[in-house]
């Protein structure tokens, strides 16, 4: 990556930090992506830690630890390196301000069928080899 590109990213990061938390009550840049793994919905159970309502300092320490390599991670060590100090502060403040959620199963899950897969009309007969 060229210096100009890196500088442009640096500027974009500063701009993001200055505007975070964003207008319209939106989460700061990056926050929405966290719920790809860290459950945000109160209905989702997961072994991955829920970020809403965590102590601000705990989030900052964790992110800084992952970023520096002081704290072992599976993917967070790789992800934390993509966030600046200002971005981490904004994320931590935002998650700390969110109410803690409860947990229950995912009701959208289609129940398992009782029988097997026999009689499926999509089945294509295989030629004899």
């Amino acid at each position: 990556m060229g210096k100009a590109l890196a500088a442009a990213i640096g500027l974009a990061s500063i701009a993001a930090a200055v505007t975070a938390p964003t207008a319209f009550g939106q989460p700061p840049p990056g926050a929405a992506a966290c719920s790809g793994c860290h459950p945000a919905s109160a209905r989702v159970t997961s072994p991955v830690v829920r970020l809403a309502g965590l102590e601000r300092d705990a989030i900052v320490r964790a992110m800084q630890g992952f970023r520096s390599g002081q704290r072992a991670g599976t993917v967070m060590d790789r992800i934390a390196k993509g966030f600046t100090d200002d971005e981490i502060q904004a994320l931590a403040a935002w998650f700390a301000a969110q109410p803690k959620g409860g947990e229950e199963g995912n009701p959208a899950r289609v129940p398992l069928p009782k029988g097997g897969e026999e009689g499926n009309p999509a089945r294509v007969p295989l030629p004899k080899k």
Partner: peptide
Amino acid sequence: LAEAWFHTITGEVFG
């Protein structure tokens, strides 16, 4: 973690 990810993201999107 792969399985946990699937469980979480499908719960977030559809649950």
